[in-house]
Design a protein around this nucleic acid. Structure first.
Lengths: 175, 175
DNA sequence: TCCGTCATGTAAATGGTTACATGATTCG
DNA sequence: CGAATCATGTAACCATTTACATGACGGA
């Protein structure tokens, strides 16, 4: 997997849903992929410039002066499938909450409880966001996209429920 | 939270378990924190140099010529507690597997099944490693460290079981 | 008119991995 | 003796965020 391939993948994938400006692209990633992906402007604009150079995306003038609407070219769609078939890179683990909890006897029991309580609250909030996302998705008419959206929502739900169950068990152990 | 604080935290925390060389420190992080944390030599050695400069760790000559054993100073222990009380930074989400699955109609059903199957296999393998870690920890004599080790192991178990349950559900949906 | 949003881009700083260079020690 | 391990450190590279600079448009 070559340079910056993950951002290229995300940008090409987002464009596969329809043409968009760089700005709208970032909105769409935040809105639809926000639960498991993120991109910043500092990544998106250089990526679009590069992808234009490789003729994987084409640029048209947008409604507003100075705005540029990008769309996938056939070569871009090929490249997208190619990138998607690459195994997803696994990033090294970095869980600040567990790092702190592991050294709980240095941190103290009260601070540990707070740590786990806050972690639980984040999982509960996530579960609420997921409930909204599920309701929205289920109320939309069926589409080729829908089952896959529901699968990623379900992944979040399983993960959040596990986090809550663990937090409850751990809070009980912490007394 | 200032510069490179997360690595400082991990290094100071690892040293709180006992003095160590940079090399041994990396081994210890990999061995004991590997399930939720990672550090590379390229981080550890500059961090040790910096922490020595701040007199948060002290350096003694080791058994081997040229080797340096580091230990926490009292100021280092204070700093450690201070860093641990900072809220753990939440890194932006980046889940390559879910990104690919979300665009499953571009990827194709067969490749989706493979993606989820591999994800399930990783979770099963993780669960096995966790079973070993749990058995090891439970067979050791009780210590102030042990309950916290078990809590982090339990976090991994909950997360891995949730990943397996989700994978089974999703594979059923994918047919 | 002024503010919020849409829009594009760059520069700097940050955080991190990987590869490399170097050499001693231990054990088979 | 030779290989694996212990040990330290640097340099290059990569990915990413944040802040900044700039400006047009639409509506209160």
């Amino acid at each position: 997997m070559s340079r910056a391939a993950q951002t290229d993948l995300a940008v090409l994938a987002a464009l596969s849903l329809g043409p968009a400006t760089g700005y709208a692209l970032r909105e769409a990633v935040h809105e639809h992929l926000g639960l498991f992906w993120s991109e910043s402007f500092g990544q998106i604009y250089p990526a679009l410039t590069r992808l234009r150079g490789e003729e994987l995306v084409a640029a048209d003038r947008g409604d507003r002066p100075g705005s540029t609407v990008h769309r996938l070219t056939p070569a871009g769609r090929e490249r997208l499938v190619e990138l998607m078939r690459e195994p997803p890179p696994t990033s090294p683990p970095r869980n600040g909450m567990l790092l702190r909890l592991f050294f709980g006897n240095v941190l103290g029991a009260e601070a540990c409880r707070q740590l786990v309580t806050e972690s639980r609250a984040r999982a509960v909030a996530l579960l609420e966001r997921l409930a909204v996302a599920r309701a929205t998705t289920e109320s939309e008419p069926d589409s080729p996209q829908r089952p896959y959206s529901l699968m990623t929502i379900s992944a979040g739900e399983h993960s959040a429920r596990a986090a809550i169950a663990w937090a409850d068990e751990t809070l009980a152990a912490l007394g």
